[in-house]
Structures are given as structure tokens and as C-alpha cells.
Design a protein around this nucleic acid. Structure first.
Length: 217
DNA sequence: TGCCAGGCCCTCTTTAGGGCCTT
């Protein structure tokens, strides 16, 4: 059975290309509809967290000063995740920081990201908001803890992803919804979900798995 | 109190503009 890794970063800002750095990372491993393992750590990059971000996340400069170095944390989380397919909410954001922080330790990503926000837009096109917390509330899923902390957000993104998979299985009579199918769904034009899923189903009723380029996400 | 971006998506669109979403 496929295992996926759902990740979430807290950072000093929005743009690693403009010098923003990670302050916290969490990775949740999910298999057979269950969380099977977790990694979580603050990290110290030596960069100052702006007051607005301290207020938003609750992660202070004093907290990260006592945290292990970012190089150590990123090496640990990269080993923890390995080559498992990745999921994040608004994955374009987490992918930028994942790639930038890995590059600093001379490592490269080899797997694809799926974005739970883009998949949610296809599965629930009438949702009033696609913020992680709003989708959790809409689906009646449990809040995992304080929003804007990496582990809580990663767990909420995990529950959302499992909810999307269950909805797709029920709606289309599928036995499973692998990462590759989620990757196809997030790229399909809006209102073409049914055509996308049907194209991906073989005569055995199992979704077709197909490799995707990292640039596809 | 957010500014910096960028991909996605919608519309009073397509030779564009603006909101959403992430911190």
C-alpha cells in the first residue's frame, strides 16, 4: 500500500528567493488511511523572525535560538521522508522552501508534490474558501492543534487529503486514490474531474499510476 | 500591519486585472 508524506513549513516570510528561511518543519507519514509516523522540529537558521510572523505563528526568536541548526533538521527530515511522494496545502509555497532548504545542504528533491488545495478545488468546486482551516471546518474534520504551527497544519492537511481520497473513492467507486491520481486531478481543468478520473481508470477499475515531472506541480 | 512572489482561477477576459492561498 502506498505511503505518502504530508509536510508543512513555518517560515520567516513568503519568499526564499528574497532571503526568507524556514523556522519549523513537520512531516506526517500516512498509509492505509492512517497516520503511521511523524517528524517535527523547530530549526535555527540564524535569521530573525519579523514580529508579525512571531505573532502569527507563536514561534519566537527565542524559541528558534534554542532549536537545532537548520542543516541538521533538514537532513533528518529528508531522511525521514526519503523518496515518498509529497503532499502539502498550497504546495507551491512548501515546495519552494523544501527545495531551497535542501539545496543549502546540497541535496535535491526526487519526488513530486500534490497540492491538497488544488485537489480540493476540483473535488469541492463550490467551497466558499480553500484555506486549510476553512476546509477542515467545512468537512467537519478535527482541528489538530494551534493553526500556523507545522505539526498541527501538517496533520490537518493529512486529514483533508484523506477526506478528499475518501470522497473520490465513494463518488467514483474506486478502491484507492493513489498520489499519481491526485496529481492528475490537481492539473485537470476545473469542472472536468469526472472525465479526468474516468480516463485514469483501467478495465480492472484501478486508477492508473503514471510518473510526473517535478515541474508538473 | 503586513510588504516583498507566483500559480491558479474568475470575469466587467484573452493585447488584463485582481483575489485567493501560503508565512
Amino acid at each position: 500500500m502506498e505511503t505518502m508524506a504530508v509536510i508543512d513549513f513555518e517560515t520567516t516570510g513568503l519568499m526564499p528567493a528574497y532571503g526568507d528561511r524556514a523556522t519549523e518543519i513537520a512531516a506526517v507519514l500516512v498509509r492505509d488511511g492512517q497516520i503511521v509516523d511523524r517528524y517535527h522540529s523547530l530549526m535555527n537558521t540564524g535569521h530573525r523572525i519579523p514580529p508579525f510572523i512571531e505573532h502569527l505563528t507563536g514561534i519566537t526568536n527565542a524559541m528558534v535560538r534554542k532549536a537545532p541548526p537548520a542543516e541538521q533538521v533538514m537532513a533528518e527530515v529528508a531522511d525521514f521522508v526519503g523518496t515518498l511522494p509529497l503532499v502539502a496545502h498550497n504546495a507551491s509555497f512548501d515546495r519552494k522552501f523544501w527545495d531551497a532548504e535542501l539545496e543549502r545542504i546540497d541535496r535535491r528533491r526526487s519526488q513530486d508534490f500534490v497540492c491538497s488545495m488544488l485537489v480540493a478545488k476540483r473535488v469541492f468546486p463550490q467551497a466558499p474558501s480553500y484555506k486549510l482551516g476553512a476546509l477542515i471546518d467545512l468537512a467537519g474534520l478535527p482541528a489538530a492543534g494551534r493553526a500556523h504551527r507545522a505539526l498541527a497544519d501538517a496533520e490537518m492537511a493529512t486529514h483533508l487529503t484523506l477526506h478528499l481520497q475518501r470522497e473520490l473513492m465513494q463518488r467514483f467507486g474506486l478502491s484507492s486514490v493513489p498520489h499519481a491520481l491526485l496529481g492528475r486531478i490537481q492539473k485537470t481543468p476545473k469542472n472536468q474531474l469526472e472525465q479526468c478520473v474516468k480516463r485514469s481508470i483501467t478495465s480492472t477499475g484501478r486508477p492508473v499510476s503514471a510518473p510526473m515531472r517535478c515541474s508538473d506541480v
